[in-house]
Design a protein around this nucleic acid. Structure first.
Lengths: 126, 126
DNA sequence: GGAATATTAAACCAATCGGTTGACATTTTG
DNA sequence: CAAAATGTCAACCGATTGGTTTAATATTCC
C-alpha cells in the first residue's frame, strides 16, 4: 500500500524534508496554520533581513509546501499541505516498525516479570 | 497536546529532517527495516565509496535514527525509530489542517453537485 | 607475526546553504 | 507626481554538504 508510492518521488521528498530541516521554515509553517500571511508578516518574528526570510519562503514554495498569491504589492502565502501529507505517509511506513519494537519491548518486560516459562524462541535475525 | 511538545526540540528535529532529506539515507533506513545490517551491507547498493556511505550512516546515527553495535570488526546497525516517531508526530500536527482543507474541498464539490438543499452542517472531522 | 577484512579518519574539492547588502520593480498613498 | 511600502534579484561571503582519495585502526584468519 505505502510500498507502492513511497520513495517513488524521491526528489520531491528531498525537497520537502530539506525544507522541514530548518527551524525558521518550520516556524513559518506553524504560523501559516493560523491563516494567510504576507511575506513581511512571516519574516517579522525572525531576526534576519527580509531578503533572507524571502529565500526561506521561496524554499517552502518550491518544496510545494506553500502557495503564493500576489495581490497588489503584497504576496500572500498559505499552506499547501499536500507534500506534508506525503512526508507523513512516508514516515507512516515506519510506524508499523516502531510500534512493533515498542510492543516487543513491552512483551519482553512482561516476560521478564513472569519469568517462569522457558520459552527461548528467539526472533529470527535476518 | 501536540502543541506542547512540537518544536520544543527544534535542534533534534533539525537533525532528523536533515537526515531524511537525502535519498541515500532514506534508502538505508528502508533497508534497515528488514533487520540489522553492517556498514558494508548498507553501503553496497550505492554508487559511492565506502567512506562516503560511512558518513551517511554517521549522519543517521547522530540524528538518533539508528544505533550501532560493534561486534568484532564489523559494525551492525539497526533502526532506532524514536526520532522517526517524533518527526511523524510533528507532521501529525498538520494532519488536522490538511484533512480540513480536503474536507472543505470535497464539501464544495458536493455542494456544487447537489446545489439544491441548503444544509451547511459541517461534520466535525477527527 | 603477517595478511586480509571492516571501518573510520583526514585532507581536500566543488556545490549548496543561509545570511548580508544594495539595486531594482511594482503598487499604494499623500 | 513623488515618496513610502512590499518584495525580489544579484553579488558576495563563510560554513556546511556530499563526494573523493589516501592513510590509519582494529580485528580475525592462517
Amino acid at each position: 500500500m505505502f510500498n507502492l508510492m513511497v520513495e517513488l518521488i524521491a526528489p520531491q521528498l528531498d525537497n520537502v524534508f530539506h525544507a522541514l530541516g530548518d527551524a525558521t521554515r518550520r516556524q513559518m509553517l506553524r504560523e501559516l496554520v493560523k491563516g494567510e500571511r504576507t511575506v513581511g508578516q512571516l519574516a517579522e518574528p525572525h531576526a534576519m533581513s527580509l531578503a533572507a526570510a524571502s529565500k526561506h519562503i521561496k524554499a517552502l514554495e518550491s518544496a510545494g509546501l506553500i502557495r503564493r498569491e500576489v495581490r497588489g504589492r503584497t504576496h500572500w502565502c498559505q499552506l499547501a499541505p499536500g507534500p506534508l501529507a506525503s512526508a507523513h505517509e512516508w514516515l507512516s511506513f515506519y510506524e508499523q516498525f516502531w510500534t512493533d519494537r515498542l510492543d516487543a519491548l513491552e512483551q519482553l518486560l512482561h516476560a521478564a516479570d513472569a519469568a517462569k516459562s522457558k520459552k527461548t524462541t528467539t526472533g529470527e535475525k535476518r
